[in-house]
Design a protein around this nucleic acid. Sequence first.
DNA 1: AAAACGAATTCAAACGTTTGCACTAAAAAT
DNA 2: ATTTTTAGTGCAAACGTTTGAATTCGTTTT
Lengths: 339, 339
Amino acid sequence: MNNITIKDIAKRFKCSPSTVSRALNDHAKINIDTRETIQEYAQKMGYQKNSISLSLLNKSTKTIGVLVPSINHSHEAQMIQGIQSVFDSLGYMLIFCVTNEQHSLEQEHIKRLLSNRVDAILVSISQETANIRDFSHFDMVNKRKTPLVFIDRDIVENYGSSVVIDDYKGAYLATKHLIEKGCRRIAHLAGPEGLLVSKLRLEGYLDCLKNHEISPNTDWIKHVEFNIESAIEPTKSWFQSEVRPDAIFGVNDYVCYGAVNVLMDMDIKIPEEVSIVGFDNCPISPYFFPKLTTIDRKSFEIGRLAAQQSLEMLSKDDFISEKSILSPYLIIRDSTQSS
Amino acid sequence: MNNITIKDIAKRFKCSPSTVSRALNDHAKINIDTRETIQEYAQKMGYQKNSISLSLLNKSTKTIGVLVPSINHSHEAQMIQGIQSVFDSLGYMLIFCVTNEQHSLEQEHIKRLLSNRVDAILVSISQETANIRDFSHFDMVNKRKTPLVFIDRDIVENYGSSVVIDDYKGAYLATKHLIEKGCRRIAHLAGPEGLLVSKLRLEGYLDCLKNHEISPNTDWIKHVEFNIESAIEPTKSWFQSEVRPDAIFGVNDYVCYGAVNVLMDMDIKIPEEVSIVGFDNCPISPYFFPKLTTIDRKSFEIGRLAAQQSLEMLSKDDFISEKSILSPYLIIRDSTQSS
DNA sequence: AAAACGAATTCAAACGTTTGCACTAAAAAT
DNA sequence: ATTTTTAGTGCAAACGTTTGAATTCGTTTT
């Protein structure tokens, strides 16, 4: 490294580091000539202030830790953009960690983030963490009084604020839409077990069926991963049975893509024979064939709000955590309505 | 913040900070009782070492700056995963910046990264930077002797190493495949002007046509953005003309999705009337309708190699930059071949 | 009993910056 | 001519940690 420091500049001009510091920061009490000479020289030499030393001094790093289980899904990308939209202009930097849905990695990363003294942490918990329910790493965050905001995937315990979509409501809306379209044999490609998100969407689906006096068929509820591939087998088995579903509600758009592939292979018409509703409103869904009816999850908005919430917490000395739940909405497209 | 420090522990046990430091780091010359007592206490109090102070001391932050134009595209997500796969296990953290294809943001973020003394920078340059060709911010990086690796989008000037896909070859392969399928009126949805990537893919396409004695039609080359929407209009205009293309080579899979939507609306059969080849091999492409023939871009691999290259540079005191070009390959699916 | 050793600990400096306070010298007010 | 003001600069401490060198104190060797 070729680190030119304030001390170097001070030596060069035979003055004290304080003077250089003041010159560079446009301090009031500084001779205008001194200031200009120093600034010019600093510029020429490519001086870059060392934020590390400042962080040490100010006990604030102007960095935010962001922990997500993966970055494959577009809603995660959108959340991140929402987060960036808030922090970028304020000069914060984002430190990014991907847990691959693993508890151990989540713990490890939280540790590193704390060690790096990030000013706040936004986290979408991993599946494994949700399953084994070991939240000790969040205890550490609380001990350090580092603002913690759960995004997208909440836990019921109160370790921090949270900003999530109303999954129950979204699922209810989706199911209701299918029922209104005349479907009665509605299957559900549910999310991974253990995740609150999956549970809430399943409940929304079940309650909606019940409220419309449709008794659920447990064969038509399969827990899958959040990807295309894992939806293939369950869908196949449903449609190879005698009594076929007449609709599928998928825990996200991806599993619906998988289901659609199976149905296309079997020459089953969508939406004439089977209607499909997803969840997320991926950017590709309006261009998929068939254009996918789905629930908009407001990913960008969630990221934005979570970021703002963390700033809020950052500004108060003794913050109170807050749970925000956003309302999703239905977007009707060709997979439930022939155009 | 509730920062318990080494000094605090030292006070508690009436010993010096050095002793505590050595106890915590399992130093050789330390009384075993002292060590255990201190470690126990540190554990209980939730002591977390302050990496900031260490960074200051060691002149290494164990952080890597990653600069990308956007995070909407799956190949970017995959690149990032490739990068993570290398750095995670080594204890490095990634600081992430999105430039939104803007030059000013790119400059600002580079400045911040340098100021934060990241150990290396991986960057996929923004469109605007490529267009206006102002690379002064990379000069600053070089001045600081911070390892710099261009990923995915290179520039011809030599500011650092680079790891990219062989865009020319990919485009050539794609075009050749279309020609072999009997297509002669091959249109190209080209990438944004100014980007080397776009230029190389266009050249590969043109050269392949030439080598097969097909004279290119400039009407059938349109520069578009890397998204679905911007492909719509150009495709429409092509297929509303008298002489229609019999194939489309898209600069990435997204623009092909857009083109497919137009063709479906016009009831034009793929691949019978029009064949389509994309570039990127998005995870959705094998599940799109029609399943998209495309060029695999080895995104994960590119990220991985770039990360390794930066480590290489980091380890040598006077590194030499290196340009790696990976060979892409063709994946044939339904959009060029009826099943 | 003196010298040598060794284990355990402390000291002090270093990393780069900021900032309240003290200081100097010159200018202004008395 | 003396005092007061003021502009400009320097000093030193602080942030948290590590580490080579120095120190202490008890034990072993001669």
